[in-house]
């Protein structure tokens, strides 16, 4: 019995072909599980472990090392704001206050309406257009006070 949808199972089969060991499929399989379950819940970890026939503790141990997996339930959209040096000197930290004011979301948390979760990022490779953020999988840069709100308003 499997906890994955047929589509996910097909994806997992493709992934496993790329590696000579089962364990090497863990990182990509965790991404698949995250998509299926919404976050890396204990069930999601378990599903990956069973699928790759690895002990759940091994899978969990690997997963928790990496900060970009969703280790908690998150809102509909994930805002990832870079505050590293090149962004900091262009006021990235001010953006955090603005987001709290406007949406009631603080770093590590989710807005009360479940719309946005917020995390602080290290450099995301857009330093020439600082400050920068990722919303879900989209890059946004040159963020100004009004600009960031206009962008976020398009994420419902």
């Amino acid at each position: 019995m499997s906890f994955f949808s047929d589509k996910a199972l097909k994806e997992l089969d493709e992934i496993k072909k790329r590696y000579p060991t089962r364990r090497a499929a863990a990182l990509p399989a965790l991404y698949v599980a995250q998509k299926e379950f919404g976050w890396l819940s204990p069930e999601a970890i378990d599903a990956v472990a069973r699928h790759l026939t690895l002990p759940p503790a091994v899978v969990k141990g690997t997963a928790t090392f990496y900060s970009m997996y969703k280790h908690r339930q998150v809102g509909r959209h994930l805002i990832q704001v870079c505050t590293n040096v090149s962004c900091m000197i262009f006021g990235a930290e001010n953006l955090l206050g603005l987001l709290e004011e406007k949406y009631g979301v603080t770093p590590g948390g989710t807005s009360p309406d479940g719309r946005f979760s917020l995390v602080i990022m290290e450099c995301i490779g857009a330093c020439d257009k600082a400050p920068a953020m990722l919303v879900d999988e989209d890059f946004h840069s040159d963020l100004t006070r009004n600009g960031i709100i206009n962008i976020l308003e398009s994420y419902k």
């Binding site: 990182l27 900060s67 970009m68």
Partner: peptide, 10 residues
């Protein structure tokens, strides 16, 4: 050749 995606660890 294939892509292996990292997950946010410098």
């Amino acid at each position: 050749l294939s892509v292996h995606q990292g997950a946010g660890a410098y």
